[in-house]
Amino acid sequence: MNLVNNIIQTAKKVLKDEADAIARLADFIDESFKSCVESILQIKGRVVVTGVGKSANIATKIVATLNSTGTPALFMHAADAIHGDLGMIQPEDFVVCISKSGNTPEVKVLVPLLKRKGTRLAALVSNTDSYLAQHADFVLNAFVEREACPNNLAPTTSTTAALALGDALAVCLLEARGFSSSDFAVLHPGGSLGKRLYLKVDDIYGQNEAPCVNKSATLKEIIIEISSKRLGATAVVSDDSKDLIGIITDGDLRRMLNKYDSTEGIQALNIMTPSPLTIETDEYAVEALALMQERSITQLIVTKSGRYKGFVHLHDLLKEGLV
């Protein structure tokens, strides 16, 4: 039991320590951070993010975030840079170097080479008195008092802080560029995330039948239409203009049986739900999902400029991975 309690307490302490460290970073956002963002916005090249060890791992994630939010970026390992990879950096690029101490040997070799190329340099460091910070054009202060590791050795809190500061940098650039959800969709076409951003109702409803009866349809005609089209519902349209006037679901049929002693003479007009909830073909599929979840329903009538087109079903959205 003591071992279990110790595990739980240790895990909670790590999370609290790292959360507190990230919260304190807000106090370090200053004019240097602002100037760094403004400088990146002006470059014609890419943001090159570099580091050694665990900082290199954080750098790769920051590069991925920058690329996915509209800022072209690439990763360069600091050790590889001084053995040939420095050639990937062009004069119009901007370098962000991540290092907790700011004094690692690879960084000390790399910085003069970058300055010689005339490359703008930002230091993302915990030690603002370090060699890296003193020779950088901009300092992104990621100071942490200690690591979450009980020995204060394993990079834990420091890497989390660096990652969070990198996110702050990426989001500031995103907002400054006016990067929209549509832009995001262009860069994320794959997977459920991409589909949420680009898939429209028009892309999926056409694979279904379009059950439809007029308002004077008999009960038999209604049941046949619902059963044959296998969507659990049918649209009801006016006899003359074919305008959408209602919907009948299999639930409406069950309620009808409780309401009427005799089903003779019952028409669609008697049991339909008027003015049904609809969604336009040019709406995003995720909006259809939100409406279904909000109303606890499994299908929506699809319209185009108010005219009946068909149905989109919850199963369609499941199949596309939106749920």
Rank of each mutant, 00 (worst) to 15 (best):
E92W: 08
E92P: 02
E92F: 07
E92Q: 15
D93A: 12
D93G: 13
F94N: 08
V95G: 07
V96S: 11
V96T: 11
V96P: 03
V96Q: 06
V96M: 10
C97P: 00
C97Y: 07
I98L: 08
I98R: 08
I98W: 00
I98S: 10
I98H: 03
I98K: 07
I98F: 04
S99W: 01
S99H: 02
S99Y: 03
K100S: 03
K100T: 11
S101A: 01
S101H: 07
G102L: 02
G102F: 00
G102E: 00
G102S: 05
G102Q: 01
N103Q: 01
N103M: 05
N103I: 04
N103Y: 05
N103T: 13
N103K: 04
N103G: 08
T104L: 03
T104G: 12
T104E: 11
P105Q: 14
P105A: 15
P105C: 08
P105S: 14
K108G: 10
K108L: 13
K108I: 10
K108T: 09
V109W: 00
L110E: 02
L110N: 07
V111T: 04
V111A: 01
P112A: 11
L113F: 06
L114G: 12
L114M: 12
L114I: 04
K115L: 09
K115P: 00
K117P: 05
K117I: 03
K117M: 14
G118E: 07
T119D: 06
T119C: 11
T119E: 07
T119G: 08
T119P: 09
R120H: 09
R120W: 00
R120Y: 01
R120T: 15
L121C: 06
A122P: 12
A122N: 11
A122M: 06
A122Q: 09
A123W: 02
A123F: 00
L124E: 11
V125G: 09
V125S: 12
N127F: 00
T128H: 03
T128D: 05
T128W: 03
D129V: 04
D129A: 10
S130W: 00
Y131T: 04
Y131C: 01
L132M: 13
L132P: 07
L132F: 08
